Computed example of a mutant assay.
Amino acid sequence: MFIPKLRWQDVLDIFIIAFIVYKLLILVVGTRAVQLLKGLMVLGLTAAMANLLELKALTWLLSRLFQAMLIAIPILFQPELRRVLEELGRGHLWKMRKGQERLEALAEEVLRAILYLASERIGALLVLQRETGLKEIWRSAVPIKAQPSQELLVSLFWPGNPLHDGAVILDRGTVIAASCYLPLTEKSDLSRWYGTRHRAALGVTEISDAIAIVVSEERGEVSLAVSGRLSKPLKEDQLRKLLIHYFRGKEEPKSFFDRFRQSLNDEDLVVEDED
């Protein structure tokens, strides 16, 4: 069997084509072009099977259909093709995928929602799910399954909304459910200044590795619960850093959350019980 010699130019050629296809697929992800591509794949597989089984009539029909699609595809994919050309003109097509920017944008959306809720003194409780699943909590709540945004989160906690009571659970880039009722902490030494939301935040972090963010309705402060410990009010830059690390999904042995959990033992972050 003859095996052609593979030159380094061939390897480079394959890599460039694969890179271009990869970038083009990234550009169409989340658009209707994905469904059109799936339809073309189904037709291609059907044509291959028809040719293999020698179904002459079906093979003839599909071949004519593909010929017609050479004209139809540029029309069907006009918005996506225009987008590709625009990205190519800006030079974005050759850059690395901007996944980190997208994740940071999600973090900013959540941050703006929290800061707005705090400024308006609207009570809120967000739970950031990590490795430990919280299905036993959110499966009995109201499913949302949407990308987090400032408008969505604010509306969920807005007074008068039937879902404003309870917590909202996020799993990275998805708002899983709202109106989730969490187990309350059994700590008896918690200050009376902290109500149900803070006790629920501590409770869920005692039974899982989740992170809970609490917006105080009375004081307009934002606190964080990690591993059954409650922080003092967080500043905006601290909250931004935490959210960016969460959405990036970096779970290193000595992650930001591990360092933050350890820092809760410092006097400048741990909540001191008030009588």
Rank of each mutant, 00 (worst) to 15 (best):
Val154Ser: 10
Val110Phe: 07
Ile122Phe: 03
Asp189Glu: 15
Gly133Ser: 13
Ile122Asn: 02
Gln129Ala: 08
Pro148Met: 08
Gly195Asn: 05
Tyr194Asn: 08
Gln147Ser: 06
Val175Pro: 01
Gly166Cys: 03
Glu131Leu: 03
Asp165Thr: 05
Ser191Asp: 15
Gly160Thr: 10
Ser140Trp: 09
Leu156Asp: 04
Val142Phe: 12
Gln150Ser: 10
Arg139Pro: 00
Ser188Val: 02
Ser191Leu: 05
Leu111Phe: 11
Phe157Gln: 01
Ile169Val: 15
Gly133Gln: 11
Glu109Trp: 13
Val168Met: 13
Leu170Val: 07
Ala124Asp: 09
Trp138His: 15
Leu103Asn: 10
Ile169Arg: 10
Gly160Cys: 09
Lys135Ile: 03
Asn161Tyr: 00
Leu163Pro: 01
Trp94Val: 04
Arg130Tyr: 05
Asp165Ser: 04
Thr174Arg: 08
Pro143Gln: 09
Ala178Ser: 15
Glu151Ile: 04
Arg90Val: 00
Asp171Phe: 15
Pro159Gln: 10
Pro159Ala: 12
Ala124Leu: 11
Gly91Lys: 00
Glu131Ser: 03
Asp189Cys: 03
Val154Leu: 08
Lys145Arg: 12
Val168Gly: 10
Glu108Ala: 01
Gly133Pro: 06
Glu108Tyr: 00
His92Leu: 07
Ile176Lys: 11
Leu111Thr: 09
Leu182Thr: 15
Ile176Gln: 11
Leu182Asp: 15
Ser119His: 08
Arg97Lys: 00
Lys187Asn: 14
Leu182Arg: 14
Pro143Ile: 08
Leu184Met: 14
Ser119Asp: 15
Leu126Arg: 11
Ser155Trp: 05
Ser140Asp: 12
Lys135Glu: 09
Glu131Cys: 01
Glu151Gln: 13
Gly123Gln: 14
Ala177Gly: 01
Trp193Gly: 12
Leu125Ser: 05
Arg121Thr: 00
Val154Lys: 10
Glu136Ser: 13
Lys95Gln: 04
Pro162Val: 13
Leu117Val: 02
Val142Ile: 11
Leu117Thr: 05
Glu109Met: 07
Val127Tyr: 13
Thr174Gln: 09
Glu101Pro: 00
Lys135His: 01
Val168Leu: 14
Leu128Met: 09
Arg112Pro: 00
Tyr116Pro: 00
Ser149Gly: 13
